[in-house]
């Protein structure tokens, strides 16, 4: 893989050059401590020191709410006019979030390809950025602390510069368009990178053991843990909204005031919501909150493994940081494991 170096003082200039490739979205501050991905107006507004944004990148590809198509009485269903061809560059994406996009690609691809998702995906370039984990991060346990692909460019911080991995032809074009800003990687740079890598590896404070977790979960299917968790959980669905790999959505029709036309809309949903598994006639397959919490864990850590060969959790720590009831995935997994050992 081609690797070049970008001195940090050239970053603002590079961002200016990037505008030719699309609208730049980057982590910016929201309130005191939080960050969000938002359009970058001034290069100075970029906050590359962030750990995680509140909402993950899925908001760009599976918007919280979107019109899938329109309908009209006696005409039927019509595709809305093509969204603009506007290109985006999402700058400063951490490895866990890049992995989450690769997971969403699996879900929205396959036998039935979701064109809504992929048309947006094809319009956005991804520029990754490495990070130092905080107390919520457990991406090393989920194997998502590094990325080999899924980005156009990937920046690794080596004190005064970034090492820039070039992942795609588009990424190469971006580097070429700002050719004078980049330098060759020196021996010292390589040493700095390795030093940084060790330092990063030592910064992890949270671990979760995922090997053989599917089997443990099967064993603990009837465990009291799920009851307790059901009582802690508020069923608010925050964890689903902030989860970079939660993709469930609900579909509904919205009627216009003429009562003869309208839109079919999809909107983020959560398996923790009470009516999630409700069917016509009133039977609810998961009426108990404990069964809904259990289902969420099973789908992430057990079901996804059966389907796609890996858990869908990327260890970003959002569910733990934002849960208003303080439910901690690491604690849950540890409890499941320790109960098994007794």
């Amino acid at each position: 893989m081609k690797i070049v170096k970008l001195p940090k003082e050239k970053l603002a200039e590079f961002l200016s050059c990037l505008r030719a490739f699309g609208e730049i979205h980057a982590p910016t501050k929201r309130g005191e401590k939080s960050h969000v991905f938002a359009p970058l107006k001034e290069p100075a507004g970029i906050e590359l020191d962030y750990t995680r944004t509140i909402l993950p990148l899925k908001k760009y590809f599976l918007p919280p709410m979107e019109t899938m198509f329109n309908f009209q009485a006696e005409k039927g269903y019509e595709t809305p006019a093509e969204e603009s061809d506007k290109k985006y560059i999402i700058f400063g994406v951490h490895p866990c979030d890049i992995h989450s996009l690769k997971i969403l690609d699996l879900v929205f691809g396959g036998k039935y390809v979701d064109g809504h998702y992929f048309s947006r995906r094809s319009k956005a370039a991804i520029i990754g950025l490495d990070c130092i984990p905080d107390e919520f991060c457990f991406c090393r346990s989920t194997g998502t602390d590094f990325v080999d692909d899924g980005f156009d460019l990937f920046l690794s911080d080596i004190e005064d510069s970034y090492l820039v991995r070039v992942g795609t032809s588009l990424g190469d074009d971006m580097v070429k368009a700002a050719d004078t800003l980049f330098q060759e990687v020196t021996v010292q740079d390589r040493e700095k990178y390795k030093k940084k890598s060790i330092q990063r590896g030592q910064s992890f404070q949270s671990e979760i053991q995922l090997q053989d977790l599917p089997e443990i979960m099967d064993l603990e299917y009837e465990s009291q843990i799920w009851q307790e968790l059901g009582e802690e959980c508020l069923g608010c669905g925050t964890c689903s909204m902030v989860c970079p790999t939660c993709y469930c959505y609900a579909v509904f029709d919205e009627l216009n005031l003429d009562a003869a036309s309208g839109q079919r809309i999809r909107r983020w949903d959560s398996c923790l919501f009470k009516d999630y598994a409700l069917v016509a006639g009133g039977h609810n397959f998961r009426a108990q909150r404990s069964s809904r919490v259990k289902n969420r864990y099973f789908h992430k850590q057990r079901g996804f493994v059966s389907q796609y060969g890996r858990p869908s959790c990327v260890g970003c720590g959002r569910c733990k940081e934002y849960c208003p009831a303080g439910v901690d995935i690491i604690e849950v997994v540890n409890k499941l494991r320790s109960e098994t050992r007794v």
Binding site: Y112, C248, Y249, D269, V279, Q307
Partner: peptide, 24 residues
């Protein structure tokens, strides 16, 4: 089997039973 289905193609999540999609 019957489940809540909103997409029919394994995306919306609603018909998931354990490790399988009822729709797929």
């Amino acid at each position: 089997l019957e489940r809540n289905m909103q997409c029919g193609v394994g995306k919306c999540g609603h018909c998931m039973i354990g490790y399988k999609y009822t729709c797929l």
